[in-house]
Design a protein around this nucleic acid. Structure first.
Lengths: 326, 326
DNA sequence: TCAAAAGTGTTATCCTTACACCCATGT
DNA sequence: ACATGGGTGTAAGGATAACACTTTTGA
């Protein structure tokens, strides 16, 4: 019944924040696009996905995972089809189960090919901490305009342009960080990311030149950029309703560190006073009594996450009061 | 490399609401526990999971799906292991990808084995519309107390009992409908659902007698009750932040119908006036001008969902203001 | 002394919740 | 007339957003 073999691939998006820089662990080999850590699931030797994931991540990068959650299972054929070769499976059909992992330690890597790379290298339009990135107004808006105008019907043009405006907050609409996946998918559909060329080439269509596709973020292997976008969207949403932010900082931290971490992930600046006050009210953190003096200004109190609260109120997230007047 | 074969199973949780009754489409065969519609994914003939799902659901039940979203991928071995036989795959390892589908029409079934069954038959502790179900105070609380006391250490006892109290809202804590999955998993861990016996028997341990396990909801085949619980948790959360409630009602509806539908899903009563007002403010519905007279009281206006809003504000959900004074 | 960062106080506004009450229909 | 359900008004309380201001350090 089956011609090709069926392979389950596991993809890990391992995230950390270093100061103000949000990071993902990528595998880099000379001459190839960056990829996510990837392993195949062996039904005979692995009891659960999670155990398999933890094992192969350690094997590939020397890194040991803490917080882990399942993201999504990708099974489409023809659309950014996974590189079956990586799984050592010839022309088999690969289904990939994506996982998100969070860790507070962005160092501790040995030299097996794993590298911490900033997210925004792959998604330069996602970082609004210093205002709207110029790439949106200068490049994305006009290319999406062209794409919209290519649609056959007037209704189609309107629908495409509406999607673009909403996804990227054009025409004065406000930016929604959680739509990172929508935005990537939109750019993909519009043929504006280099990954498309590969898929079209595979389908026998003519691929655009590299120049045509260049500029919109650094591409990744296979469908890995889509998986990374899924992880970013999920994490941005989740820190507002679950206390996962604390998985990304150490045992103790200043409120400024916490805010920097949240801002790095959310991609926009927060209103410091209200961020603090909301944390206070939530009861999620408590002062340790100690002070951090290396702040560059007045020393800050060190806080600790009250893990007990996970049992009582696991639904608490950190407030994300947007700073409106930059 | 592989001893057994690898099979991808697709499970569909198809939900509808009939009046005040929340329903799921189940497959029923004489002498066997109820199961969810289930099909195996054939990599050669199916391009995407979703297409495969739509096709086999139509084949098995004559039903054609509308709204569909992926839930979770289950891959554990030994824990409510899927019935490989159903997939026609001998002793193969089965991975199941769960999907949630919503439909406004709970009728239109032909006679192929599909039956609409109320959720609360499988989860009698989840329906709080007429107050807390007696099964919680009468059975669940005491059995979980016993389970907690079975733990070796004092800390273990405390931790188990804390989990139980929080999950089921014991000792005056409030009930959180979205924890339906937590509750099922807790009962599973505590060995209080019949499905456990099957897994233990498979692992060579002694299975409890049927009497010991009876009472806590109607069991389902394989891990299907866990998948159904996942779907309930997801749907209960989702209607509060996405306009999916409208996938469960017809083109036009009264606000009371909408409220009944929301209450059926959430499992608790809503505050009618505030529910209406919140809908109003959200701009998600508009009056059609027509009236429904079969209400048993004053005739009600018929409303329509403003689909346009999906493009502008896809993040809108319906308010769920709990009614506190019943 | 000044810049930078921590931290406090206060106010306007909006949303949620709760309660009270009126309206229109069938029996 | 009265029960039932539809529908409106409004006031209290809490959360959010914005603004102004003080404190403590290093350069």
């Amino acid at each position: 019944m089956n011609g090709g073999e069926l392979v389950i691939g596991l993809n890990a998006v391992i995230m950390a924040v270093d100061g103000e820089k949000p990071l993902a662990l990528v595998i880099r080999n000379a001459g190839l696009p960056d990829g996510l850590p990837f392993g195949s699931f062996e039904p005979d030797s692995h009891r659960t996905f999670e155990l398999a994931l933890r094992r192969f991540v350690t094997e590939q990068t020397g890194f040991s995972l803490g917080y882990v959650e399942q993201l999504y299972t990708f099974g489409d054929r023809g659309r950014e089809a996974p590189l079956a070769e990586l799984a050592g499976a010839g022309d088999a059909r690969v289904i990939s189960v994506g996982y998100l992992a969070l860790t507070p330690q962005p160092d501790e890597l040995d030299e097996r090919g794993g590298v911490w790379e900033g997210w925004y290298r792959y998604f330069p339009w996602e970082d609004h901490r210093k205002g709207e990135p110029r790439i949106i107004a200068e490049t994305i808006a006009s290319r999406l305009r062209v794409w919209a105008d290519e649609s056959g019907s007037a209704g189609g043009r309107q629908a495409r342009w509406d999607r673009a405006r909403i996804a990227f907050g054009l025409d004065g609409r406000d930016w929604n960080g959680q739509r990172a996946l929508d935005r990537y998918e939109l750019l993909y559909e519009a043929g504006l990311v280099p990954e498309v060329s590969l898929d079209q080439a595979r389908d026998g269509e003519t691929a655009g030149t590299a120049e045509e596709k260049a500029g919109l973020g650094c591409p990744m292997a296979s469908d890995h950029r889509r998986i990374l976008a899924t992880a970013i969207s999920r994490l941005r949403a989740k820190i507002t309703y679950r206390p996962v932010l604390f998985e990304l900082v150490g045992e103790t931290f200043t409120l400024r560190e916490l805010q920097d971490t949240a801002e790095a992930i959310l991609g926009y600046r927060l209103h410091a006073q209200n961020f603090r006050r909301a944390l206070d009210r939530s009861g999620m953190v408590e002062s340790t009594g100690e002070m951090e003096t290396e702040t560059g200004g007045r020393p800050a109190q060190l806080y600790r996450f009250r893990r007990e609260i996970l049992r009582e109120q696991p639904a608490l997230g950190v407030a994300a009061p947007r700073l409106r007047t930059p």
